[in-house]
């Protein structure tokens, strides 16, 4: 029972991080119908700056710079590349982000070099003892930070003028434009927000508690595991991203304990497959209808 509780908390903590990443996918998808394959590289950009600057700026300063940098990297990709490829359809743009991803990832990975550093200094590898159960501090903090950020995001999405504009554009791009909503600004902020969320997520991912793997290709691969989270919940549903993230986090934690560590990543994908076979657009995604 104690093990189970322990797994539950740790799994939820992981789930919160996956939810942050999945929200990034969903925000961008809602605004532009583009799947951002470069999300993993945004994660790396943020993490890399934290690693480089934490000795000079202190961890908090470096973390802030990392988050801002990841957000700006997202903005840059959108403004420089995607905004200039209006003629291309959504799918080609998704492919374009693959190219971007390859370049940024290779560059960051080679700069990090052989170090593969951990960047969660203030909380990493300092487990909390609560009676008989041990909780990873990283996951616990991730759970709190994730809950706060996700709540803030969902509230903003629901009530702020940015959120209304975003939802209007997702509903009907042309009508929204006719109502005076600046499509380019909505799109740009979507990428900005997604980048910032990725920048936060990496602070928890590149730790011993979370993955045991430092900043490097492994981090990038973990960002890919957030893909099933977004898909599982439904790509155009913010609530779905949160649910998907938690499902993925729990699946990974539980299967790593009860089946095998090697199997845990496959388990995530198998759960996603099962969900997709039953509901091809994810749990909360809009069903695609074809009219003849």
């Amino acid at each position: 029972m104690n093990t189970f509780l322990q797994l539950l908390v740790n799994g939820l903590g992981k789930g919160a991080v996956y939810a942050l990443l999945a929200l990034g996918f969903v925000v961008i998808y809602k605004a532009t119908e583009v799947i951002n394959f470069a999300h993993g590289s945004l994660v790396l950009v943020g993490g890399f700056l934290v690693y480089e600057l934490k000795d000079t700026l202190g961890w908090v300063g470096a973390a802030v710079v990392g988050i801002v940098a990841a957000a700006l990297a997202g903005l840059l990709i959108e403004r420089v590349l995607l905004a200039n490829a209006r003629a291309a359809d959504h799918n080609s743009l998704a492919l374009l982000t693959i190219g971007v991803d390859v370049i940024i990832t290779e560059e960051v990975v080679r700069r990090v070099g052989a170090d593969i550093p951990f960047i969660g200094d203030p909380y990493d590898a300092q487990p909390i003892q609560l009676g008989a159960i041990t909780i990873f501090r990283t996951q616990a903090i991730a759970l709190v930070v994730g809950a706060v950020l996700i709540t803030a995001f969902l509230l903003a999405f629901r009530y702020s003028s940015w959120g209304v504009a975003m939802r209007a554009q997702a509903e009907n791009r042309e009508a929204a434009a006719l109502m005076g909503i600046r499509s380019s600004r909505v799109t740009a902020t979507a990428w900005l927000v997604a980048g910032a969320l990725a920048g936060v997520a990496v602070l928890f991912i590149a730790t011993q508690d979370f993955s045991g793997a430092g900043l490097g290709r492994g981090t990038h691969a973990i960002a890919l595991v957030a893909f099933p989270a977004a898909i599982l919940g439904g790509l155009d549903s913010t609530a779905g991203a949160v649910v998907g993230g938690i499902v993925v986090g729990l699946t990974e934690a539980l299967s790593a304990q009860y089946i095998s560590f090697e199997f845990s990543k496959s388990a995530v994908f198998l759960v996603m497959l099962v969900v997709l076979v039953v509901r091809p657009s994810g749990l909360f995604g809009t069903k695609e209808l074809s009219r003849v």
Binding site: A85, A88, L96, I98, V100, V102, E106, E107
Partner: peptide
């Protein structure tokens, strides 16, 4: 080579 083909993908789509 990853740089080259990554850039090629971007340029092709653009």
């Amino acid at each position: 080579s990853a740089f080259v083909y990554g850039a090629a993908v971007v340029l092709v789509v653009l």
